[in-house]
Design a binder for these strands. Structure first.
Lengths: 232, 232
DNA sequence: AGGGATTATGACAGTTTCGTGACAACGAGG
DNA sequence: CCTCGTTGTCACGAAACTGTCATAATCCCT
């Protein structure tokens, strides 16, 4: 269990909400900072570079969408996930929010449990292998910078699709994905391909991994899809 | 439309309120149980593991927040959504309630229609996606994210139907189900199958669980169906 | 204890799903 | 134009899974 201390910044002008969130998240071991306005948020973001931001959508002075857009322009801050907290849920709000660059939204009032679930979901989606461009699980190492893969320290050639597939698996370990989900994540949405195509690429990936006796990393989840496992 | 029978537990010390809710919900096909106190609620929860709890916030003896906190500590009960019923709604009440682990609140007086809407909303939020689901009872752990089952921490293989059957049982503990109900819930409605088919799959499930000496988890309810028990 | 009803169990065949090799299409670069 | 690497699809056999039946075992009531 690679439990990193998660750093959360809560931006909301109502102190009651801030405190409720702080209390709820603290119990699950997250470190929580608060800001009451957009301006204060910008300061704190620079100071402590949080892992994720919970942002009230309706605030005086600087509104949620505006802060979001501003963060998305800064090169340091553009990768910080944002969950927007909204009172109403008109379909329009949702669209504007996600367009502005938010990663998820949650409607007030919400329970701490739900919030925690969303935070974890967003973080899981966002973090692509720790920034240093090097992902390692077991005997497999991917250098995303040079786009090279090493099996037992030996460089091995991967085709483009095989590479992306492996990259996705390495960053989403121990979860099962349906063929449709894999097509979405690896090939991209709005692509019409046979689901069985996934099987073939799984096969090709397995074949390469087999050269280093690593075939067992990819498991079949019958009648559903595949899973990339890494034993503890 | 996957119409599942929703099981509601109403906890309120005023019998008039209980009956009103029971009447209002019964009309929309929900099965309603009642409890007049926190103690009685705890008993009924263990017996029938409801899908959702409607909890009066102001009660003698054990108050709403206290019961909530207690439920959130039990591993079996921690995932049952709770809607609190409150007379007043001060900002503080709201905060304490959600902090304690409630999922939503509704202010008295309310209409049956509103109540039904809230219930459905909370269930929709809580149940599906399954994203981060990890269910544990006794020595059995299901990880719905990776679609894996562990018996005594050891991963064990389950076929698709066996998996779904076990999943249903794990989320509906200590209640007995007829073969027809199991066919509905596990196989899906509008399926014509022999009822005896259930027996065979029960057998297969038992066989797997027996490898970890867990056979006693599935009990036969003669001339009715089966029940998945978990002792305290 | 007897007998009918209900359930457990093993076997089996039909069906679904998956692994695998082959192949044609395509584009880049010689 | 040809070659090479890559990719999506297909067809076929292997393996896994599923529903049903026949028979043994068990339970319940008289």
């Amino acid at each position: 269990m690679s439990e990193k201390q998660i750093n959360v910044l809560v931006v909301d002008d109502e102190s009651a909400i801030r405190e409720m969130i702080r209390f709820g998240l603290a119990k699950s071991g997250m470190s929580v900072q608060c800001a009451a306005s957009g301006q204060e948020a910008l300061l704190k973001i620079n100071e402590q570079s949080p892992d994720i931001i919970l942002l009230d959508w309706m605030m005086p002075n600087m509104s949620g969408p505006e802060l979001t857009r501003r963060l998305r322009k800064g090169s340091v801050t553009e990768d910080i996930p944002i969950i927007m907290l909204t009172a109403r849920v008109s379909e329009d709000d949702k669209v504007t929010g996600l367009n502005a660059g938010a990663d998820d939204y949650i409607v007030k009032p919400f329970s701490p449990r739900e919030l925690i679930a969303r935070i974890n979901a967003v973080l899981r989606r966002a973090d692509p292998g720790g920034e240093d461009g090097r992902i390692t699980t077991g005997a497999i190492t991917m250098d995303t910078a040079s786009r090279q893969v090493f099996l037992d320290q030996e460089p091995v050639h991967f085709g483009p699709t095989e590479y992306r597939l492996l990259e996705f698996f390495m960053t989403h370990v121990n979860r099962s994905y349906s063929r449709a989900q894999l097509l979405d994540h690896v090939w991209g949405t709005n692509v019409y391909l046979e689901e069985r195509t996934v099987d073939v690429h799984i096969r090709r990936l397995r074949k390469i991994l087999a050269t280093a006796d690593l075939k067992h990393y990819i498991q079949t989840v019958r009648s559903h899809g595949y899973r990339f496992v890494v034993e503890d």
